[in-house]
Nucleic acid binder design. Structure first.
Length: 514
RNA sequence: GGCCCCUUCGACUAGCGGUUAGGUCACCACCCUUUCAAGGUGGCGGCACGAGUUCGAAUCUCGUAGGGGUCACCA
């Protein structure tokens, strides 16, 4: 389903510069949902000639993880979604870490306190639990009953002055409803009875998300808040804050959620949703971005492969579908394979692949060798990691033969011996020469191609599943090709002392056992 | 459970009153072939249900069902 008719206008009343922001909290692995939101933030901001800000929401000290911030920054860099302002590069709205902006929130919290739109609450953790329990029992909603609102100003001031711990809560209306003008869903109305007196300022003097986002978004001039649908239920708190401060609301855009195969919100715990993990698996940034873009959005002309640039040209929030898409690794791999094979040039793929080869402990004599290896493997792999998994025999001579390969070697021993002679006679060892030689041999022996090629393939790679034999031989080069044939022959001679193998083999294809 | 959002093939989606409901992934088959792939061709498979509105509904309205989100001094 697409956006409702008569939805909210996307444009602010004036010609304000569009400002979007991604505000991750540094609590762990950079999440794919962050990349998802960043993509739309970035694309929309760039399209509108606006700015995209990265702000770190580190207001939860308990869950704070110091490495996490840098990993988010790095992940955005990897993706190519460079913020115009961030804690790393700074900007006119610095600082970009909320714990460095504490006085600001304090100021606004006090303002709310003075105007009576907020109040101090002194309940302890245990008391709160009790309240919640009671409310649940009586069926009168949950959360907090607002009892501290009834404290007199004098008492509140006195208890605060005496050093008693307190939080500051927003005094929300109990009657009526709050309207969220969501650009994708139209008008969403939530009864105020459902809107809790949210904590704005925690007892440690650090604001909650609710106060911090609103203040920062306003102060930083954020015009469009693009965030996950999970925020819709608490959006009234934010709308109410804008209203009591008398600030103009941003355009609210609650995006559909990314789901796992069970249809549940993608979670760090259950699901593999870490950007670093995708990177390590050899997913390429362009492919991930393209894939993410198709989750809930589509090109007007139906193209499924497109660049960030093209997306910026064509993007409209109107084409967002609200269903919430299942993150499908298979499909991501398909996109990745396409980028590896069709979009990125070989040199670029090689650059991206190098860290993987290095991590695998492989070394190569020159760039061309690496390029040839990648080129011939490309149709067979979908990720950079698979490139190394399938190329061991290109970087080491001491590979083992699989059981299937052993059988092929045994069946083709005489061909190997002949081929060793034939190939050693070649002056040039380029594709045509090798290919011609092999084909001529097959013809002269009047056997099936496979009878000759499979044993050779097994000798060259230790496996029966590999690229074309002529390609393999040419890439490996004459001397290594001959060495490997020789190695296979000595293996056969050493490994088969008896005339006949013990167990009668049932081998369908290469059944030509002597 | 309350509140809110959502609902087209298994998955991602096109469709915005008149289409044989289109494409992609996955899956299956065939072709190509020297194995594995890649590539090519074809196939399987869908408008959650029920009422309306209308000459005509996947498209508009309502209801039902189902799914999801959220109910913290976490974001």
């Amino acid at each position: 389903m697409s956006v409702k008719q008569g939805g909210v206008s996307m444009s602010q009343e004036s010609l304000k510069t569009v400002v979007t922001r991604i505000a991750p909290s540094p609590t762990g692995d950079p999440h794919v949902g962050t990349a998802y939101m960043s993509l739309f933030d970035y694309v929309f901001a760039k399209q509108q000639g606006g700015k995209f800000i990265l702000r770190i929401e580190d207001t939860d000290q308990k869950r704070y993880n110091p490495e996490s911030e840098q990993r988010v920054i790095d992940a955005l860099k990897w993706l190519g979604l460079a913020p115009d302002e961030s804690p790393e590069i700074g900007g006119p709205n610095a600082p970009y870490r909320q714990t460095e902006r504490l006085e600001l929130y304090q100021k606004y919290a006090n303002q709310l306190l003075e105007s009576g739109h907020a109040y101090r609450a002194f309940e302890t953790q245990e008391e709160l639990e009790q309240i919640r329990e009671d409310m649940q029992k009586s069926g009168l909603g949950q959360g907090y009953d607002g009892r501290a609102k009834r404290l007199s100003k004098e008492e509140s001031d006195k208890r605060a002055a005496s050093g008693e711990a307190f939080v500051i809560r927003l005094a929300t209306p109990t009657e009526g409803e709050t309207l969220i003008k969501d650009a994708l869903r139209g008008e969403v109305r939530i009864p105020n009875s459902e809107v809790p007196d949210a904590v704005l300022m925690k007892s440690d003097g650090i604001p909650t998300y609710h106060l911090a986002v609103v203040v920062d978004d306003h102060v930083m001039g954020v015009t469009h808040v693009v965030r996950g649908e999970e925020w819709l239920p608490t959006a009234p708190v934010h709308v109410l804050l804008y209203q009591t401060f008398g600030w103009q609301e941003p355009v609210w855009i609650h995006m559909p959620l990314l789901k796992n195969a069970d249809g549940k919100k993608l979670s760090k715990r259950r699901d593999d949703s870490s950007l670093d993990s995708y990177k390590e698996q050899g997913i390429v940034a362009e492919a991930l971005l393209n894939y993410l873009a198709t989750m809930g959005w589509s090109m007007p002309d139906g193209r499924e492969f497109f660049s960030l640039k093209d997306m910026i040209k064509q993007f409209k929030f109107e084409r967002i579908s609200l269903g919430g898409s299942v993150f499908d690794m298979k499909r991501l791999r398909h996109y990745n394979a396409h980028y590896l094979r069709e979009v990125l040039d070989l040199e670029t793929v090689a650059e991206r692949a190098k860290p993987f080869f290095e991590a695998a402990g492989y070394s190569w004599k020159d760039e061309d060798y690496l390029l040839d290896v990648i080129d011939v493997l490309l149709p067979r792999i979908e990720t950079l990691a698979e490139l190394t998994e399938q190329s061991a025999y290109f970087f080491s001579d001491s590979f083992n033969y699989t059981e299937e390969a052993k059988r092929k070697l045994e069946a083709g021993q005489k061909h190997l011996e002949a081929l060793e002679r034939e190939l050693s006679r070649l002056d040039f060892f380029d594709f045509d020469d090798v290919d011609d030689a092999l084909r001529e041999y097959v013809k002269s022996e009047s056997v099936k191609m496979g009878e000759v090629m499979m044993p050779l393939r097994a000798a060259l790679t230790g496996s029966t599943q590999a690229p074309g034999v002529s390609d393999l031989a040419v890439i490996l080069g004459k001397s290594r090709t001959l060495e490997r044939i020789g190695r296979a022959i000595s293996y056969l001679e050493a490994g088969l002392p008896d005339d006949k193998p013990q167990k009668p083999k049932k081998d369908d294809e290469a059944g030509a056992t002597p």
